[in-house]
């Protein structure tokens, strides 16, 4: 079993999670499944990387994507 992390669906965007999965595709194999009120990511094949570090960095990436996409969506709605 690899590392697992849950992203609360009210705080993280699904498209942000997908963008992060794409960005990390060369670093790790990441499976996303729908949890209860969350999107769950499971990490396997992280190669020589420290799996904990990868999970942390990945979570930052998802957060960044979520914030950026929320901002863009708000502007799109305004205009």
């Amino acid at each position: 079993m690899g590392e697992r992390v849950a992203f609360d669906a009210t705080l993280y965007r699904e498209d942000a999670l997908q963008a992060a999965v794409d960005a990390y595709s060369e670093v790790a194999k990441i499976e996303v499944s729908q949890g209860e009120g969350s999107f769950d990511a499971e990490f396997t094949d992280v190669g020589d990387y420290d799996p904990k570090m990868i999970v942390h960095a990945f979570a930052n990436h998802v957060l960044h994507e979520t914030i950026a996409r929320r901002r863009q969506a708000a502007l799109d709605t305004d205009s």
Binding site: D8, Y12, G37, H56, L63
Partner: peptide, 18 residues
């Protein structure tokens, strides 16, 4: 909360829960 998080993601790992 997001605004503050954004300023910290290059300095530490930030993870949010509910």
């Amino acid at each position: 909360v997001y605004g503050a998080c954004y300023l910290f993601i290059d300095r530490c790992y930030v993870y949010l829960t509910r």
